[in-house]
Nucleic acid binder design. Structure first.
Lengths: 240, 240
DNA sequence: TCATTAACTACACGCCGTTTAGTTCGTGTA
DNA sequence: TACACGAACTAAACGGCGTGTAGTTAATGA
């Protein structure tokens, strides 16, 4: 913010910092979470491990940066998939979002583990622990899907008596601002959507589903359709 | 199998082998997955790390044994909770199973990670990769719940055209033997139940839900009720 | 009694994250 | 232009890890 013209030094520095992340992501994709080590990254860059401490104060800070990058790319992907369908096609947008989630996860198992599992050996989430902004965006995206379906949601949804105070202020505030017509109950529904998409995908990524079925994608598709139906968006064609 | 009377040596040996697992589980519960190391276990037992190789050929074999134990204890817990309700109370049994799953997971986060996540640093599932017997039992348990509800499942369940060949032979065979009246579609439904329970619980265990809501249990309860309703077991009292 | 052998230790190897002290070199200023 | 500063980096060390291997102890059984 303070620098109008980033000096040459600053440019080199920023470039190195992002090269570290780039190499880390490559190692992650190539050799799984355990292949991401400061020593391996440094080796790959022709440096020594200690040098990385000039860019990230600790390994976990680097991992945290990676998580944010990867999480953001996931949410970007889902939003793009959703936006390929017009606002009028609530079912299409829901299915697109859900499919994009699974496709990304299956294509990026290491990334999925990074974001939703134990990222790498010994990593602990930072104390301050503000959820990454990407998680917030994901929740908003889900709320948007719920919002579009809300008029059709059959009143039969079990009301567990959710209140606004049940949710993180950051979440409540954004949703009330973006979708003023939604009740707290709808936020609960959005989080449940999240859980429903997450369940089968997590089981598949970690190999539990493949031990039981040869076609997890069929299972997931059925789940998405059931999910759409339960939101009152039933039978609007199973677009890709 | 060959020994009628286990010799003193054999008894000591078996006792040591299980003490290793016991200590490992204690370390796991106490210090998370990273606290489980051969050196730590040996230290705790007044041995050296190498000694453990006399009992488990490699660290991953020990971890595999732990996973089996922990997974089995989870399934035992869920089955017991379910069996507290009579067969006639299909909804009660479903809710009990589901609640038991979450309660166990929240009370045993390290165990949950061991079974459903990346167990510990560098662990890779064994090649032969037969899914643990406990996973099989869990699937059967879910199928039983579906079986009890099957007459009520509204025909509207989206049919994704599942066939018996879509599932692992071990699973298909057991289910066809135990519940001859069930179609392949019902197995798919059982696996989807699994995913639905798994989703919110996994998000909660890994800290993603708590960043968004202060009452994950309410969310999960609502999900279970919705799930029961979608199986046609609606409105049969929200028993504990 | 004594050879066999299971059980275990001691040590080494290469990996890891992290810290510290020392070195190199581009940069802004006098 | 000369020089001092400081950023960037290396080298080496610490303790921890899983895993082999060679050597030691002690219980077993003929």
């Amino acid at each position: 913010m303070t620098s109008a013209t980033p000096s040459r030094r600053e440019r080199l520095r920023a470039e190195t910092a992002s090269e570290i992340k780039r190499v880390a992501l490559r190692l992650l994709a190539g050799g799984g979470p355990d292949a991401v080590s400061l020593r391996a990254i440094a080796r790959e860059m022709g440096m020594t491990a200690g040098a990385i401490y000039g860019y990230y104060p600790t390994r976990d800070d680097l991992i945290t940066a990676l998580i944010n990058d990867v999480y953001t790319s996931l949410v970007d992907t889902m939003e793009a998939a959703r936006n390929a369908y017009p606002r009028s096609d609530a079912a299409g947008r829901l299915l697109a979002w859900g499919e994009a989630f699974r496709v990304w996860a299956i294509g990026n198992p290491a990334g999925f583990r990074l974001v939703y599992g134990d990222p790498v050996t010994g990593y602990r989430v930072p104390e301050g622990g503000a959820a990454p902004e990407a998680a917030h965006r994901a929740c908003i995206g889900l709320a948007e899907l719920v919002s579009a379906a809300w008029p059709h949601v059959r009143a039969g949804q079990p009301s567990a008596g959710h209140r606004w105070s049940d949710f993180a202020p950051a979440l409540s505030d954004s949703i009330r601002e973006a979708f003023p017509e939604l009740p707290a109950e709808a936020v609960a529904l959005a989080l449940r959507l999240w859980g429903r998409m997450h369940g089968l995908v997590a089981l598949e990524v970690y190999g539990h589903l493949r031990a039981q079925t040869t076609s997890p994608e069929k299972l997931y598709r059925a789940e998405l359709l059931d999910l759409a139906a339960s939101l009152g968006l039933g039978d609007q064609a199973g677009t890709t």
